[in-house]
Design a protein around this nucleic acid. Structure first.
Length: 208
DNA sequence: AAGGGACACAACCGCAGAGCC
DNA sequence: AGGCTCTGCGGTTGTGTCCCT
């Protein structure tokens, strides 16, 4: 049995107060991101290290963009999701100033629905079978307000069962064909640290 | 104006991988 | 080699806000 990450009785949970935020920012500004486990005590916070890390990464980091996603960011998320599936940290790594949590939330609340409305299965980025019927074409080339071009593809003579098996990760990396055949993304970042993108030209410690 | 449902987003939880001893 | 700790990730939940009736 794994030890809990902290003594839950002694830690606060739920929304962060302004004072807590300030303590965390002050501490990291002075000392940088160090050992998250010991940070709360050192910073005078009644939080577990995990909670501090999440708060910093998703909300307090000074290089965060926040605000609405631009259309090109939306397109990039959709394309990257088609390739990578739910690897939110990798996707976020290609979007400077965005966090994996933010991307994940945006996907779940906006983009998923958007794709569904366009007749695209958000799990595998294929046009839904019933919409491929000749009488009900989904107007693919102009279907999106984001400028994303979705091309109708001829489904190979693959049994539908295959779809189920390959879509569990939400990625069509292994698929021969995909709803986004025009993708030409440089994915050489596959070995990049998710946090590198926003650190490029920026030291690990955000303030010195 | 009030109530209820839908939506958006912050935060938590549990798991897995990496590194260290 | 194996166990332990720490960190990071993805899934899920909780809560506040908005919108519709």
């Amino acid at each position: 049995m794994r030890k809990p990450c902290c003594n839950k009785q002694d830690t606060n949970k739920g929304a962060w107060s302004k004072q807590e935020d300030q303590k965390l920012v002050d501490y990291i500004t002075k000392h940088g991101e160090g050992c998250w486990r010991s940070l709360p005590e050192a910073a005078g916070l009644l939080r577990c290290g995990k909670s501090c890390r999440l708060r910093w990464i998703n909300y307090l980091r000074p290089d965060l963009k926040r605000g609405n996603f631009a259309e090109d960011e939306e397109d990039l998320i959709i394309k990257l999701h088609a390739l990578l599936g739910n690897r939110w940290s990798l996707i976020a790594g290609r979007l400077p100033g965005r966090t994996d949590n933010e991307v994940k939330n945006y996907w779940n609340s906006h983009l998923r629905r958007k794709l569904i409305n366009m007749g695209i299965d958000p799990n595998n980025h294929r046009l839904k079978q019933n919409l491929l019927r000749p009488h009900n074409p989904p107007n693919p080339a102009s279907a999106t307000s984001t400028g994303l071009k979705i091309q109708t593809i001829q489904q190979p003579t693959k049994p539908p069962v295959d779809n189920e098996q390959t879509s569990d990760a939400g990625s069509c990396l292994e698929d021969d064909q995909c709803a986004l055949p025009d993708l030409n993304l440089d994915l050489t970042m596959s070995v990049r640290s998710p946090s590198i993108a926003h650190v490029e030209g920026n030291p690990k410690h955000y303030e010195s």
